[in-house]
């Protein structure tokens, strides 16, 4: 299959259609993700941006199949590498997880098991997915650590996570994720818990890995800045729905959805007048227990109209490849 890649550059690695996820809590059904669709082409990187509770992490947990109780996929489809993932048994899914798709998490301080050496934890992934001996797996682990530029990899492999700094731990996590050469790497806010200089290093590393492998990357963040560094495409999520999706260039040039505009306004700019205050988006996030009838962003939207409060906006295609779920576009396209 791999040799088909070149002939078909547009081949989709991940396709998510109309995905809905709910958490069944004692307080009621929390509709965390409501009808989300997006896709990722092989070798490309997709950024998912949104604030806490927008459903960005939950949707990739579903893609990995590690959604925790009481969370359940209640509708839609997930296709990865031409496999309909939701039809797989847990035992089949497990063979793909960690091998063809792997994931790194927000907090490297807590994501590694404190009682096993880093080398052991990387070797474990290798052993779980390949027929090999423990010795060879350990060698593989050392090679993995070297690949993410950890100095003294032999010695480091024998050390425990508490002997690693935060940035080093995140590198170790990345090397673990890459140990089986996955087709897809999901990075769930990989830099949020790190300090700024380390953030830059991790981003550099991800960029380098993307260049050197044909791996697809899904990067979840609430930092618009990181997206431009790595990703080709970006989707903006809010209240469990996709607000806008486009290529990164297009989104920055022509942001269409009021929420996207709000997010971009939030970014501090060095070039602008330093006296200019940052503009926060007023209001608070959606109550997913009782999501609004209309557009989830409507109550906070500065361009909110009557129709927004009562009817869900369809996903308007503003330009080829640029979608935005906002009623404003109906009138704009009407005028055109």
């Amino acid at each position: 299959m791999d040799n088909l890649n070149n002939s078909n550059a547009d081949k989709k690695l991940v396709e998510i259609k109309d995905l809905s996820i709910s958490f069944f809590t004692p307080a009621g059904e929390v509709k965390a993700v409501r009808g989300v669709s997006w896709s990722l082409r092989e070798g490309e990187a997709l950024g998912i941006v949104g604030e806490s509770g927008s459903g960005k992490s939950v949707s990739v947990y579903a893609l990995m199949g590690i959604l925790q109780n009481p969370g359940k996929v209640i509708g839609g489809s997930i296709t990865f590498n031409n496999i309909d993932m939701l039809k797989l048994k847990e035992s089949q899914w497990r063979l793909i997880r960690g091998k063809d798709m792997s994931m790194i998490f927000q907090d490297p301080m807590t994501s590694l098991n404190p009682v096993y050496t880093v080398g052991n934890q990387i070797a474990e992934t290798v052993l779980a997915h390949t027929r090999t001996t423990a010795q060879k797996a350990n060698k593989e682990a050392v090679k993995s650590l070297a690949r993410v530029h950890i100095p003294n990899p032999e010695r480091r492999a024998r050390q425990y996570p508490f002997e690693f700094s935060g940035g080093m731990r995140q590198r170790a996590m990345i090397s673990m994720a890459l140990s089986c050469e996955p087709k897809l790497l999901i990075a769930d806010e990989p830099t949020t818990a790190l300090d700024v200089t380390i953030q830059a290093q991790i981003i550099e590393l991800l960029k380098e890995l993307k260049k050197n492998t044909n791996m697809g990357i899904i990067l979840i963040t609430h930092d618009m800045g990181i997206i431009t560094d790595i990703c080709e495409d970006v989707i903006i999520m809010y209240g469990g729905q996709v607000m806008e999706s486009a290529s990164v260039k297009e989104l920055y040039k022509n942001p269409a959805h009021p929420y996207t505009l709000g997010l971009l306004e939030c970014l501090p700019r060095l070039s602008s007048d330093s006296d200019e205050p940052l503009k926060p988006i007023e209001g608070s996030p959606v109550d997913l227990l009782n999501p609004p009838k209309g557009c989830p962003f409507a109550p906070r939207c500065f361009k909110c109209m009557k129709i927004c409060l009562n009817n869900q906006p369809p996903n308007f295609e503003i330009k080829p490849g640029h979608h935005s779920a906002c009623w404003l576009h109906q009138y704009q396209s009407g005028r055109d």
């Binding site: 990995m64 590690i66 925790q68 497990r94 063979l95 793909i96 997880r97 960690g98 091998k99 792997s102 994931m103 998490f105 907090d107 807590t110 994501s111 590694l112 098991n113 404190p114 009682v115 096993y116 474990e124 992934t125 779980a128 997915h129 996590m173 673990m176």
Partner: peptide, 26 residues
């Protein structure tokens, strides 16, 4: 509920192995 259990799941480790190796020892 710890993050490293989620990591183990994301690595594709078998359920009982997660329980015995990763959870029980802690």
């Amino acid at each position: 509920g710890q993050d490293y259990i989620r990591t183990a799941r994301a690595k594709g480790i078998k359920g009982y192995s997660i329980l015995i190796k990763h959870a029980m020892r802690n």
